[in-house]
Amino acid sequence: MMNVAKQSQMAGGMNMGFVVIAEPDEVNAARIKTILDSLDKDFSYALVGSAEAAIQLVEQNTTDVFIADMQMPVIKGTELFSMIEMMSPETIRIVMTDGARIADTVAFMNECRTFKIIIKPCRVADDLMAPIRAAFRYKEQLERAAGQEQEQETACSMTEQAYLEHRRMWLMRASNNKRAQDVLAELMKVNLSFSDMEVERKERLGRWYVWLVSEYINCVSCGTGEFKTAAEGLAAFGNKPEQQEYFELRCTADEVVDPERMNEVTYILRIITGLCKDILNGYRIMAILEPMEKVYVLRVRIQMYKDSFRIKNTTMREGLSRATELAIDALGYKSVVMNKEQETIFNLALRR
């Protein structure tokens, strides 16, 4: 199995971040290496094929992000992630899986307290890079928070405002966890009736359903809830002018959007954009978030090019679209969709 030597952790005198990836499957490891080597990135990485090699790397290096398959040979995935957490608790951990068993994956993430999930094989570079970038952002936030906490401890006091902010974050996390359980349970109930489908369509819809669930976990359960971070991540995912893919998100007010609602907006826009990327050869998406007195109104205008379908099979397109609609419906909000020639307008009201 390949063992890609660690790239230099110094660039222009500045320390770079370091990522350890453990992937026992040689085909997927080659795909990961191809993606990472083709991109400009502000971190170095080591790609290994065994848990033992990964453990040795984490022991010998300051590791910012650790990525490994849920099922490793010799050492079980749960044991590997537990060891990494004990050895390097500040390392952000991400699990990879083929997505065949969603319930097992969710249970694994809860047990091992992993930050995000990567569904393999990675279809596009962003499937791999988005979780890695998010992990670095999250690590920076934790480090800033730790610094602030140290300052508070040094001062031996906590202001009322700081206490209320901490309390709000604790309550939001508890609410997010309960919300995640409810929505995932609702998604699990969806019956896509695979039995009467041809194999290709069955596999395509199955992969899409797995992706929808993984996006929910990543966006809603693990999202930062910050508008700027969400907008930047969505633009990186959906705005590819060289591929005739355009995405823009705006907010009509300067107020801070409720973090829980912002995570849900991010999820909705991610799966809508993912659907467009899958079935269309180019699109223009304009999303506007409008805070109102009792609700947030999300308006999405999707424009497509004439005869631009990437997937020619109408039944397949309708199946993917329907699965996406069901995923949005599982959030429990009322939506209105208007279909016009080469344009779709989507409106949704989210409670404040």
Rank of each mutant, 00 (worst) to 15 (best):
A253I: 10
L289P: 01
I328K: 07
P121W: 14
Q148I: 08
R173K: 13
L36S: 11
E248L: 10
D69W: 02
S214Y: 07
E149I: 08
T344F: 02
F237W: 06
I94D: 09
I279T: 04
E260S: 14
L326D: 14
R167A: 12
S308F: 06
Y209G: 01
M292K: 09
N281Q: 13
P291Q: 08
R201L: 12
E293M: 00
A130D: 04
S195V: 15
R201K: 15
W211N: 04
I67N: 04
L326E: 14
F194L: 15
N61D: 11
Q243R: 14
I328E: 11
R31V: 13
K33M: 11
D126N: 10
W170A: 13
R310D: 03
E52D: 09
A253E: 15
E343D: 01
R204D: 07
A107I: 07
E245P: 04
S38Y: 13
A54T: 02
T314E: 09
E52A: 06
A146E: 14
L298M: 00
Q71P: 04
V337E: 03
I217L: 07
M172W: 07
A327F: 13
T273E: 05
E151Q: 08
I102S: 03
V220I: 07
L289C: 09
Q141S: 10
K6I: 08
D196M: 12
V256R: 14
E200A: 13
Q181D: 11
D127M: 04
T159K: 08
